[in-house]
Simulated assay, not measured.
Amino acid sequence: MRFMILVKATKDSEAGVMPDTQLMAEMGRFNEELVSAGIMQAGEGLHPTSKGARVRFSGKNRSVIHGPFAETNELVAGFWIWKCKSLAEAIEWVKRCPNPMLVDSEIEIRQVFEAEDFGDALTPELREQEDRLRAATASGQPQAE
């Protein structure tokens, strides 16, 4: 099972306050543990929403909303993609994580959908397309048209 681990934003992270050397070292050690255990597949921090945008969909219309965005507790400051045997295992790993912020914070855990989760809606043609796109993504090469 794959899980997306969402590091929730704080007022400091939204203000662009960067972690200190000690926190960077602690997170580096934790990431080393994750990689050594075969858990971590990806992970990155995100710039504040003041440098981002949202695209709102309404029927065929699209509108762009530029950051910063309100409601800091609903924003994401970073993420990992982990491969774990269960939600319980992902929870245990998150509990070992250093606090990623300088203040009280939260980390959210969400399971990533896999092809099997879509049942009959994922036809053989759609599964082939999914496999082809994953292979192209993994290779880093653009897909031939």
Rank of each mutant, 00 (worst) to 15 (best):
R2I: 03
R2H: 06
M4I: 09
M4T: 04
I5R: 00
L6M: 13
V7D: 00
K8C: 09
A9L: 03
T10N: 03
T10D: 02
D12C: 09
S13T: 05
S13E: 02
S13P: 02
S13I: 01
E14R: 07
G16T: 08
G16M: 07
T21F: 11
Q22M: 15
L23T: 04
M24S: 11
M24R: 09
A25L: 11
A25T: 12
M27A: 07
G28T: 05
F30Q: 01
N31D: 09
E32F: 13
E33C: 04
V35A: 15
S36R: 09
A37Q: 06
G38E: 04
G38L: 06
I39C: 01
M40H: 01
A42K: 04
A42S: 08
A42N: 07
G43Q: 01
E44Q: 13
G45Q: 02
H47K: 11
H47D: 14
P48Y: 02
T49D: 01
K51G: 14
A53S: 13
R54N: 06
V55C: 08
V55R: 08
R56Y: 07
F57A: 14
G59W: 06
G59V: 06
K60E: 12
K60G: 09
I65M: 12
H66W: 12
H66C: 15
G67E: 04
P68I: 03
P68N: 04
P68H: 05
F69Y: 08
E71P: 03
E71N: 11
N73G: 15
L75V: 00
F79G: 01
F79A: 02
W80I: 01
I81S: 01
W82M: 00
K83V: 05
C84T: 03
K85L: 14
S86L: 07
S86H: 08
L87K: 13
L87S: 11
L87N: 13
A88E: 14
E89M: 05
A90L: 01
V94Q: 05
K95N: 14
R96P: 01
C97P: 04
P98R: 02
P98Y: 02
N99T: 10
N99L: 11
P100E: 05
P100C: 06
L102I: 13
V103Y: 10
D104G: 09
D104L: 12
E106T: 07
E106N: 07
E108V: 08
R110T: 11
R110Q: 09
F113N: 04
E114R: 11
A115H: 07
D117G: 06
G119N: 06
G119Q: 05
G119V: 06
D120Q: 10
D120N: 13
A121R: 14
A121I: 15
L122C: 13
P124R: 04
E125C: 15
R127Y: 11
R127S: 10
E128M: 15
Q129V: 10
E130W: 09
E130F: 10
E130V: 12
E130I: 12
L133P: 05
L133T: 10
A136Q: 12
T137K: 15
A138M: 12
S139A: 10
S139H: 07
P142I: 04
P142C: 07
A144Y: 09
A144S: 12
